[in-house]
Design a protein around this nucleic acid. Structure first.
Lengths: 138, 138
DNA sequence: AATTTATTTAGTATTGTGCTAATTATGAAT
DNA sequence: ATTCATAATTAGCACAATACTAAATAAATT
């Protein structure tokens, strides 16, 4: 599995923003990224460069593309997020809070540690936000 | 309830170390703290001063004492920790990993958000480590 | 081609975390 | 009570992460 834990929270947020855009027509531009993260473009570029050093993306002339590793990280984090969030909401936590809290650990946990949770939760297809939980397991 | 979220992870770790010692006979010395946190004494002192600025402890001549607010924070974090950890272990996560993961959020969540969890978990008296979960609720 | 918009570079700042070396204070032993 | 050892504190430094502005360069649009 992926070797998470080598990301900071902001790097994680950045990766998620990029990954979430990935389905769209055109590659993400730096300016879009800086807007969605609410930071100035030099700050965004700094983040992008750090993720590039970690081989999670490539960027040229403002176009940002995830590498295979980047996509894999992104999907794993998203999946972790949804499972953790589902668990917390299942146990009575407010959705907004569960989401914020999950953001602080979804990029720290490796997927296998969470796989049992997924099963015990009844392999939910959707997270509380209604988005589909992609399945890489089996 | 307590106004958490104003702590960094290291400040949290520091507060926990101090709180865990609190039951002992003598106040914690700086040198003990630095040993238990695996940092040099000037670094430990720096942490102590920051927690002091946040009114969570007082220190004089190397003796460190939690304030009322500090104790309250400490207990709340410990309780949050145990509940989160219990939930994760209940859902199949390895205890060690659940503990490490919980450490990253126990100081960020306010207690009320977690109270439902406590109830749904059947108001467990002990966490997976076997320590008693103190009850401030009711 | 001129203008607007976007990217990048350069330089600066703050916060958190950590260190070493030196100084001061405290406590114990002779 | 003076010396010795231990602990606490100060001062100074360093680095990574995060963020900014202003200026320079590149790209795209009119």
């Amino acid at each position: 599995m992926n070797d998470l834990k080598e990301l900071t929270k902001k790097e994680r947020d950045c990766l998620i923003s990029i990954g979430q855009h990935d389905s769209e027509k055109f590659p993400l531009r730096l300016i879009d990224l800086s807007e969605s993260l609410n930071i100035r473009s030099p700050t965004a570029l700094n983040l992008v460069k750090r993720l590039e050093n970690k081989k999670l993306l490539t960027h040229m002339k403002g176009m940002i593309l995830l590498t295979g590793k980047g996509k894999s990280f992104y999907h794993e984090i998203e999946e972790n997020h949804r499972i953790l969030e589902t668990l917390m909401v299942e146990y009575g936590m407010d959705l907004g809070k569960a989401c914020l809290l999950s953001e602080n650990i979804d990029y720290l946990v490796d997927h296998r540690s969470i796989d049992n949770m997924f099963v015990k939760l009844g392999k939910p297809i959707k997270c509380p936000h209604g988005r589909i939980i992609e399945q890489f397991h089996d």
